[in-house]
C-alpha cells in the first residue's frame, strides 16, 4: 500500500502525543461545528458591528448603533413577549407532560412502546403543516368556531387566531414530545420501591411526589424544560402563522431583518442579544434549580 508511510507517521504522531488522540476521534465533529456553526457565528458577530448598506449588504464601517437601537420600547416589548411565551410554554408543558410521561412510564410494557410511538408520531409530518392545521381550526371560520356556533354556544366567532394564546397552543403542541421524552426517561428509571418506602414512612401521595418523585426526576425536568424553552425563544414559524403581526416574537424580528428589511447588521445584533440572554437565563436556571451537579453535567 502506498499510504503505509503516511499511516505510520500518523500513528507515530499519536503515540508520541497521547493527549491529542481524542482530537483524532473528534476531528469530524470539530470540522462540522467549525464550518457550520462557528464560522457563521463569526460572520454575524462581525456584521452586527457594521453599518447597513443602502440596498442590503453592509458598509465596512464600525458602529454600536445596531445594539443601541435595540434599546427601544418597541423591541424590548417583543423581547419580553418572547420570554413570557417561552416561559409559559415550558410551564404548560411541564404540567401537561409530567402526568403523561408518568402514565406512560408506569404503563404495561406492551402499551408503553405504543404510547411512546404515539408521542413521536407527529414528527412524521413537518411542523409547518401541523401549524397550518391549527390555523384551520382556530380561524374565525374555522372548525372550532364552527362547532361552537353549531352547538349554539356562541353567536359571533371568537377571535382565536393571531393571539398570544394561539402561539402558546401551537408551541405547546409542537414541543410536547421534547418535554415528554426526557421526563419519560427519568421517570422510567425511578425505583418504585423508593415510592413505597416514602409511603411506608408516612408520606401522603402529594408529599411523596414533592419529596421523592420530583427530586429524583429532576434531570428529566431540567432537560425537558431546556429542550422546550430554548427552541421556543428562537421560534418564528409558529409565531408567524398563529401570532401574525399582533404578537410578534423575536424570531420573527430577526427573520424580518434578514429577509424583507434587508438589515443584516441589525438582525445579527438582535440574534446576539437573544443568545446572550438565553445563555444567562439557562445558566441561572441550572444554578437555581439544579444545584452543583446539574451545572457540572452541563459543563
Amino acid at each position: 500500500m502506498e499510504n503505509t508511510g503516511l499511516r505510520k507517521r500518523i500513528l507515530k504522531f499519536f503515540n508520541r502525543h497521547e493527549n491529542l488522540r481524542s482530537f483524532g476521534v473528534l476531528s469530524p465533529c470539530i470540522f462540522w461545528i467549525g464550518i457550520f456553526f462557528l464560522l457563521p457565528l463569526l460572520f454575524m458577530a462581525t456584521y452586527s458591528f457594521l453599518e447597513r448598506g443602502l440596498y442590503g449588504g453592509v458598509n465596512w464601517l464600525f458602529t454600536w448603533e445596531n445594539y443601541t437601537r435595540f434599546v427601544d420600547p418597541l423591541y424590548l416589548k417583543i423581547l419580553l413577549r418572547t420570554f413570557r411565551i417561552s416561559f409559559l410554554t415550558t410551564v404548560i408543558l411541564l404540567i401537561v407532560g409530567y402526568p403523561m410521561a408518568y402514565r406512560i412510564a408506569r404503563a404495561d410494557k406492551r402499551w408503553r412502546n405504543i404510547l411512546l410511538f404515539l408521542v413521536i408520531l407527529p414528527f412524521w409530518t413537518s411542523d409547518l403543516i401541523r401549524t397550518y392545521a391549527w390555523m384551520l381550526i382556530l380561524r374565525d371560520t374555522g372548525l372550532l368556531n364552527g362547532l361552537l356556533k353549531y352547538l349554539h354556544i356562541i353567536r359571533e366567532p371568537l377571535s382565536l387566531l393571531y393571539t398570544e394564546g394561539a402561539i402558546l397552543l401551537g408551541l405547546a403542541y409542537v414541543y410536547l414530545p421534547f418535554m415528554v421524552l426526557p421526563l419519560y426517561a427519568s421517570i422510567e428509571k425511578l425505583d418504585t420501591s423508593l415510592l413505597e418506602a416514602a409511603e411506608d414512612l408516612g408520606a401522603t401521595p402529594f408529599w411523596r411526589f414533592l419529596k421523592v418523585t420530583v427530586p429524583l426526576t429532576k434531570s428529566g425536568i431540567l432537560a425537558g424544560s431546556l429542550l422546550v424553552f430554548i427552541p421556543s425563544v428562537g421560534v418564528f414559524v409558529v409565531s408567524d402563522l398563529l401570532g401574525g403581526a399582533k404578537a410578534m416574537m423575536i424570531g420573527n424580528l430577526v427573520q424580518l431583518q434578514f429577509g424583507p428589511a434587508r438589515n443584516w447588521p441589525f438582525g445579527s445584533a438582535a440574534s446576539f442579544i437573544l443568545m446572550t440572554i438565553v445563555l444567562l437565563a439557562v445558566f441561572g436556571y441550572l444554578k437555581f434549580a439544579g444545584g452543583k451537579e446539574a451545572l457540572e453535567e452541563v459543563r
Partner: peptide, 15 residues
C-alpha cells in the same frame, strides 16, 4: 401512610 407500621426493604430503598 395510615398504618403505624414501618418496613425495612430488601434492597434498603434508601433515598
Amino acid at each position: 401512610y395510615e398504618r403505624n407500621v414501618n418496613t425495612v426493604f430488601q434492597n434498603y430503598a434508601l433515598f
